[in-house]
């Protein structure tokens, strides 16, 4: 009897909208926004607030459809830079739009999840960096699906020996996303947080503004080595992506 009461309580705690989309990507309160796309990506939007994660530490609010409609063409334009074959290789199929995305109370632009082939995006993320943020998060999906290709230790050796990254991206105060005038091996302050963020920042500029990268590496040997490493490593996955 005690066990039965325990399960009844447990089932009530686990009370979520166990619908067909939850069954697939394990995110509740989500509906289809746009299903048919040339690169097979599927766009979903939060129809209600949701909390996910083992400790329910990832939270996001329902999307305002008019807000999403106004931003969707920019979002779609950026995702259309990737073909279906590449997206399959990096295990990305579902883009979930929501607002005020946070992890453990810290606001963030996107949360990638290769296991569920999902990228959650906050459509209210700073519009100045929004497009770059999309590619930044996609890089994290590339890296986690091809960790053997992107060697963080090797990448770190391109820096001056006196430089040290922080232990994690959230335990650093190096958060500014503005492009440095004098790069000295790093495109932004956020690049200095971890090797993974450094790589993701380079990739995001390569996808959104190749000219800037071309200009910056002319007089920055460290950055040039890093960019070459990213290009070389990406070519192992897909020769045509850059």
């Amino acid at each position: 009897m005690k066990i039965l009461i325990f399960f009844i309580l447990l089932f009530q705690i686990l009370h979520v909208n166990a619908d067909e989309i939850y069954n697939l990507i394990k995110i509740p309160n989500v509906e289809i926004y746009k299903l048919k796309n040339n690169n097979n990506i599927r766009y979903l939007n939060a129809k209600g607030n949701f909390k996910i994660g083992v400790k329910m530490n990832i939270a996001c609010d329902k999307v305002n459809i008019e807000n999403l409609n106004s931003k969707f063409s920019v979002i779609e334009k950026n995702f259309n830079l990737y073909n279906s074959g590449f997206l399959k290789k990096i295990k990305l199929k579902y883009i979930v739009f929501c607002e005020n995305l946070s992890i453990s109370g810290i606001n963030t632009g996107g949360i990638p999840n290769n296991k569920n082939r999902t990228l959650i995006l906050d459509i209210n993320f700073n519009q100045e960096y929004f497009e770059r943020m999309i590619h930044h998060e996609i890089f994290h999906m590339i890296q986690s699906s091809h960790s053997d290709v992107f060697d963080e230790n090797k990448f770190s050796t391109f820096n001056e020996t006196s430089f040290n990254y922080a232990k994690c991206s959230t335990c650093s105060d190096r958060l500014n996303l503005d492009l440095y005038k004098n790069t000295n091996g790093f495109l932004t302050e956020y690049s200095k947080s971890t090797p993974s963020e450094d790589m993701a920042e380079i990739f995001s500029f390569l996808m959104t503004d190749k000219k800037i990268i071309k200009e910056k590496i002319k007089n920055d040997k460290i950055l040039s080595n890093k960019v070459n490493y990213i290009r070389f490593s990406l070519a192992k996955i897909d020769k045509n992506i850059l």
């Binding site: 399960f7 009844i8 089932f11 009530q12 686990l14 009370h15 979520v16 909208n17 166990a18």
Partner: peptide, 9 residues
């Protein structure tokens, strides 16, 4: 049905 719960008791 489980009345919107994940599993049915």
């Amino acid at each position: 049905t489980g009345n919107k719960a994940i599993y049915v008791l």
